[in-house]
């Protein structure tokens, strides 16, 4: 691997990285929104809906991401869904992560101390206000560490998109490796790059977590 080889492929590598970031951020954003909606909907007193949503979550958490991608990309047309590779990739990331985010938000709601809800009940707050003003903020704050963690996991899952020919970074690296017979060097560089990236993002994430959860130091425990 020499410098001007790298230089020649730089545009495609940068574009690949751009696609990676795009897929990760759009997929992650939709996943968060969908996951949150699912978590809220599961609290409604409507058993068939809760059952269906539970099944959704179990399916997307119980099967490999790659199989889900194949289903969307290759199997999609058979149910009228003609998605291009990148669209399938983003949709796949969104659906996959939404199931995990739904569970994270569910746990967040469970982590709201009962006492805070009781205080709201004792002043006569209506259920909607209790949810919107007390339970939701507390649940969201409690969910932050897990959300950060899942977003990091999602960033690593983007490499799987290369298998369905989404032109993200891994795909570009493999193309370059094949065309220049530098497989080993290319993969090595890819590994090093990802390691660095994930390490930096993890540290950043930890700092964000710390700032947000310092907020939530519980009252009754100190005193």
């Amino acid at each position: 691997m020499n410098a001007d080889l790298l230089w020649r492929y730089l545009p495609s590598l940068v574009s690949g990285f751009g696609v990676t970031v795009f897929c990760w951020s759009v997929g992650g954003a939709f996943g968060l929104i969908l996951g949150f909606a699912i978590a809220l909907a599961r609290r409604l007193p409507f058993p068939p809906l809760r059952w269906a949503l539970r099944a959704f979550v179990e399916i997307f958490r119980g099967t490999p991401f790659l199989v889900q991608l194949f289903l969307l990309y290759a199997g999609g047309p058979y149910i009228g869904l003609r998605l291009g590779a990148t669209a399938a990739g983003v949709a796949g990331l969104a659906l996959y992560s939404s199931a995990y985010f739904a569970e994270i938000f569910r746990a967040g709601f469970g982590a709201v101390p009962a006492g805070q809800i009781e205080a709201a009940i004792s002043v006569g707050m209506a259920p909607f206000d209790i949810l919107a003003r007390v339970a939701l903020p507390a649940a969201l704050i409690a969910a932050v560490p897990s959300i950060v963690n899942m977003l990091i996991i999602l960033s690593k899952e983007t490499v799987v998109l290369s298998i369905i020919t989404v032109p993200e970074l891994m795909y570009q690296v493999q193309t370059m490796a094949a065309e220049t017979f530098t497989a080993f060097d290319a993969i090595f560089a890819m590994a090093a790059f990802y390691w660095l990236l994930v390490e930096c993002v993890s540290r950043l994430g930890a700092r964000v977590e710390k700032r947000v959860t310092a907020f939530l130091a519980h009252d009754g425990a100190r005193g």
Binding site: P113, G115, Q116, E118, A119, A120, I121, S122, V123, G124, M125, A126, P127, R133, V134, P137, A138, I141, F215, L216, A217, H218, D219, G220
Partner: peptide, 24 residues
Amino acid sequence: SARRLREMRREIGMVFQHFNLWPH
């Protein structure tokens, strides 16, 4: 009914052992 219960609770103040302030 839930609504009447809420109305009555408005007139009763309660202070808890663990304060139960809303941290956010």
